[in-house]
Amino acid sequence: MPFLELRDGAQLFYKDWGNPNGSIITFSHGWPLSSDNWENQMFFLADRGYRVIAHDRRGHGRSTQTWSGNNMDTFVDDLEELFKYLGVKDAIMVGHSHGGGEVTHYLGKYGTGRFKKAVLVGAVPPLMLKTSTNAEGTDKSVFDSFRQSMIQDRAQFFLDVPTGPFFGFNRPGATKSEGQIRSWWQQGMNTSFKSAYDSITDFSETDFTEDLKNIDIPVLVLHGDDDQVVPIEASGLKSAKLLPQGMLKIYPGGSHAIHNINIDEVNNDLLKFAQS
């Protein structure tokens, strides 16, 4: 398995699939998952001649379980090291949920020199937390309950999330996939407790507003209008307006995990955007 040794000695696991000479598309995963959560999109695009790259964020998946550095600045610094090492250029950057924040902050901090387009899928920007200036956000008590649930029984909490709101399996008439639930649980439990715990603050309290305003490439925003984890009113709708070249596609009835549930539609949207 390929690993990159980072500046602090941590090992970053990554996948580099498909045509080594093909156009590059990178993927950033959500909380508390790993690059495995993107396997349907990666296989689909690699099978069509693209070079697809995804990493396990530090503390997640197969990467080193560092005690500190579980924050957005460190995460995007890791990405820049990876992209430099792999020679990423003229590429498309894709991120889901927390990974959408990673994409946004990377482009805000390092600029768009390596990338020509980006895609945000059910992404957390501009700000998840409810504040005096962000009335559509989620109250801090919700994120406090996440942390408390982890402390009380992380294994059960990481079963409750995919069984319910993450995939929308708690909605009437939903077709529940036991496989999706088990995969989510396995990925989550492979993430270090400290990284998963710290990342709750990172994805909920990081304000990406200025990053969004400074991204000078086309950005496709894909969001389900029944996203129970990152409600579209506080995220996708706002991000599309803040982005200078933002384009929004709403998935009617779509959950937080549209790339895992609406697989064919998301795959085709990514391919169409890449080809445009």
Rank of each mutant, 00 (worst) to 15 (best):
224 G>P: 08
252 P>R: 14
132 S>W: 13
40 N>P: 05
219 V>M: 02
195 S>C: 14
216 D>S: 13
149 S>M: 13
122 G>C: 08
76 V>K: 05
138 T>Q: 15
88 V>C: 05
243 L>E: 08
230 V>R: 00
175 T>W: 01
197 Y>R: 04
230 V>G: 06
46 A>Q: 00
245 Q>F: 14
147 R>G: 15
180 Q>A: 14
275 Q>D: 01
133 T>H: 13
149 S>L: 12
54 A>P: 04
49 G>L: 11
33 L>T: 03
168 G>V: 03
114 R>V: 00
131 T>Y: 10
46 A>G: 07
68 S>V: 11
201 T>P: 09
133 T>A: 06
160 D>P: 09
112 T>P: 01
209 T>C: 06
15 K>T: 14
100 G>F: 04
56 D>W: 07
59 G>R: 09
244 P>E: 11
193 F>G: 05
240 A>K: 04
16 D>F: 00
205 E>M: 09
146 F>H: 14
162 P>F: 10
117 K>S: 12
245 Q>V: 05
52 V>W: 03
16 D>P: 02
77 D>E: 12
104 T>N: 02
7 R>M: 02
158 F>M: 14
215 I>S: 09
27 F>Q: 04
84 K>T: 14
24 I>W: 00
43 F>M: 08
73 D>V: 03
72 M>A: 12
128 M>K: 06
19 N>W: 00
229 V>N: 06
39 E>T: 01
69 G>A: 10
73 D>K: 06
111 G>N: 05
72 M>R: 10
182 R>A: 14
125 P>E: 06
188 G>Q: 03
225 D>A: 07
43 F>D: 11
66 T>Y: 06
148 Q>A: 13
138 T>K: 09
209 T>A: 05
76 V>W: 05
24 I>S: 00
262 N>Y: 14
220 L>P: 05
70 N>P: 09
179 G>D: 07
66 T>I: 11
221 V>I: 02
267 N>C: 12
135 A>G: 07
180 Q>T: 07
211 D>V: 04
258 I>M: 01
45 L>F: 07
154 R>C: 07
235 S>D: 07
69 G>M: 04
61 G>M: 06
239 S>H: 03
251 Y>R: 08
